[in-house]
């Protein structure tokens, strides 16, 4: 089992040091084998948390630490964190012309393998075909430029495809359900469920209970004003669906 641990994490936007912190002391532990959902109102730091864990250079950690099995990753570059086992399914994946999807995924896999043991093209294509088939992605998406001209739904599916191919220890999924129709949502959820194993843990950011009907979480956390103010099981999300976040106050009891 591998454990991702966030301790008293305070974060600011690097270019706005005079502005208040976005994260004000987040504590969270995600172990492989567990599915965590992170919910909460807009603009309260959920995406900032995911991006900071991944190492987005836009954010500055002013206090606290992020560790994997006790080793701090706070000072590692984003690519090193990825190779340490993190994956961030982004809310707005970048479009890159001229680089094909397949070429990129292969480069990402090979970055994790020693120079003299790169994945063979046959093996790679076989795995890619199987994963694309599972996600019901048309074949030509392998040869299309990375996210270029992809619809919102295609981009989300492509994030899951990359995760399935790269096989990280932790998948941080930032609103992987936004903009998806019911069928696409089911397919994307199937992809995440397929990865569910004792060697894989997830932190899913979502606004909707609907996603959690398909991917049943072990833990649900509510973030408000830069802190996790409540933690519970899957039933917490169902409760919030009825009550909303209004009644929860930052700084209140932490379950």
């Amino acid at each position: 089992m591998t454990t991702l641990k966030i301790t008293d994490l305070h974060v600011k936007v690097k270019e706005e040091p005079e502005h208040p912190e976005i994260l004000k002391g987040v504590n969270l532990t995600v172990s492989t084998g567990e599915i965590h959902a992170l919910m909460g109102p807009n603009g309260n730091g959920k995406s900032t948390l995911a991006e900071t864990i991944m190492g987005n250079p836009k954010y500055l950690v002013t206090q606290g630490d992020i560790t994997i099995d006790g080793e701090s990753i706070k000072d590692l570059g984003v690519d090193e964190r990825a190779r340490a086992g993190l994956f961030l399914g982004m809310q707005y994946p970048a479009e890159i012309a001229g680089v094909t999807n397949a070429e990129f995924i292969r480069a990402a896999i090979n970055a994790r393998r020693p120079e003299d043991d790169q994945i063979s093209i046959m093996k790679f294509l076989k795995e890619l075909d199987a994963a694309m088939d599972f996600l019901k992605m048309p074949e030509d998406m392998a040869d299309r430029y990375l996210n270029q001209g992809f619809s919102g739904g295609e981009k989300k599916r492509n994030e899951i495809l990359q995760m399935m191919m790269i096989k990280p220890k932790f998948g941080l999924l930032d609103e992987i359900d936004s903009g998806l129709d019911i069928d696409a949502l089911r397919i994307v959820a199937n992809g995440v469920n397929k990865m569910r194993s004792p060697e894989f843990g997830t932190l899913m950011i979502t606004h909707y209970q609907r996603l959690l009907d398909y991917i049943v979480p072990d833990f649900v956390h509510v973030m408000k004003d830069g802190e996790i103010i409540e933690t519970g099981g899957a039933e917490l999300a169902k409760e919030l669906e009825k009550t909303g976040y209004e009644h929860l106050k930052a700084g209140d009891a932490n379950a």
């Binding site: 570059g77 690519d79 990825a82 994946p93 970048a94 890159i96 012309a97 001229g98 970055a111």
Partner: peptide, 26 residues
């Protein structure tokens, strides 16, 4: 673009090369 590529574990030098190749590819 660099952040996206590197967030998949691709080292900076290779990520840069991919972006540049892609740019010229057109």
């Amino acid at each position: 673009q660099m952040y996206y590529l590197m967030s998949r574990g691709v080292p900076e030098a290779i990520a840069k090369r991919l972006v540049i190749r892609g740019f010229l590819e057109v």
